[in-house]
Nucleic acid binder design. Structure first.
Lengths: 222, 222
DNA sequence: GTAATCCTTACGGAAACCCGTAAAGCGCCA
DNA sequence: TGGCGCTTTACGGGTTTCCGTAAGGATTAC
């Protein structure tokens, strides 16, 4: 079994359960942090001491409070850790159940397992830890049964997300076009952007921009 | 201390912690349900048996799965319970931290305490249970420090929420007007509705309708 | 080298919005 | 009854979205 595990989870009520699972699995060293920044520090320290962690279990969303932080989410934490210790095994344990979000975690951040917090997630988490230890790939908790090869949501790319983000911030077409030109994102003609928004509206069956952003929010795309 | 407590919480990783707190407080009878419907049934059964619960601790949001349910949220559960056993003490334990949502829980559903899931929520929950037992009123976990008498968010009433809801569903002004006429909600002229939306835009500093709905989603208003 | 195709951009008219102003409706009170 | 204040509604013009059509440019096929 894993020898040294780091848990990043802000909710104390949940971390309690995670740590309990790790103890049952007889993991000798279990550390727990409530802020992403702390997590990165611990990873770096362990590397410097030549006693690196071999598993990270992290949540995605962290509450913001008085404390000033540079890493705001599990995504950012994983991204930062990948730059210093890419070979570490990574399990995400989160409430998120949108396929788009989860796919990018596997494809872009290279996580090993995703466990969705739910009615039977403690058992799911235990299984995921064991499977990860046995070098299985792309482990998904059983309540998430979407197809990994489903093209549908993969087709929505970062370009679309950028448009949706700006729309949700109150930008009008022309401003989006200007912004894209500044950032050298192409295509950036108002007409092209308009066309792309139209595709999104058809895809999500939205009547208008307002409806589209409401749906995008529900899907966790923005 | 309380003699018989019902916990309604779908996430097993969290209910574990809640039950643990109750055990530490030496509550003799602790029941736990993962679905709201189950919760209502247990309450009714206990009443019929003349052994009613004296405390309810519930989450607000419950994941939907294959199972068909009639009560979808903690709000609905409390509302239903209030109809059969209004005198039961009620504590809400949820991640939600929007003052609008929480105020309506106190004002319209008559809950006794609200504890926000956070980095120190186990201790907060314990305190809230004890304070509730001692008949204190309107207990709020300490990380939520908004003023109860703050008029700002109270001014946003169900009329505004209705507009925002319809907007987020892709309705145009005229359709909203028609819908309001059908439901005999007044005012229902397009102009009045437009004016009200304008107020909301000023209040939330939104540039346009798209922006407004994005903000409303963030605030959990729709 | 030319045609076919796709992507990007431009254009224009109808619909919906945004925003200010003005009229109509309604309760209140003298 | 008539005037006052407030709310609701109507109206109008400027802006933005919405949606179809088409021109220009790049890539691919043959």
């Amino acid at each position: 079994m894993f020898k040294k595990v780091l848990v990043a989870e802000d909710l104390d009520s949940i971390s309690l359960a995670v740590v309990q699972v790790l103890e049952e699995l007889q993991v000798p060293v279990i550390h727990h942090v409530k802020y992403c920044d702390e997590g990165l520090l611990k990873i770096k320290k362990a590397l410097a001491d030549n006693e690196p962690y071999d598993l990270l279990i992290t949540d995605l969303s962290f509450k913001s409070d008085h404390r000033k932080v540079t890493l705001n989410s599990g995504d950012e934490l994983i991204d930062a850790i990948n730059k210093v210790q890419p070979n570490i095994k990574k399990i995400v344990f989160s409430i998120e159940d949108k396929s788009y979000r989860i796919k990018t975690l596997f494809n872009e951040l290279g996580i090993n397992a995703y466990v969705s917090k739910g009615r039977n997630s403690i058992a799911e988490l235990r299984n995921a830890i064991e499977s990860t230890f046995n070098n299985e790939e792309k482990i998904l908790s059983s309540d998430l049964s979407f197809n990994f090869n489903d093209k549908a949501l993969i087709e929505i790319e970062s370009y679309d997300i950028s448009i949706l983000k700006l729309l949700s911030q109150g930008y009008i077409l022309e401003s989006i076009s200007k912004e894209f030109k500044d950032l050298s994102i192409t295509p950036n003609g108002t007409s092209s952007i308009e066309k792309r928004i139209n595709k999104l509206k058809i895809y999500f069956k939205a009547n208008n921009n307002v409806h589209l952003i409401a749906i995008a929010k529900d899907f966790g795309l923005v």
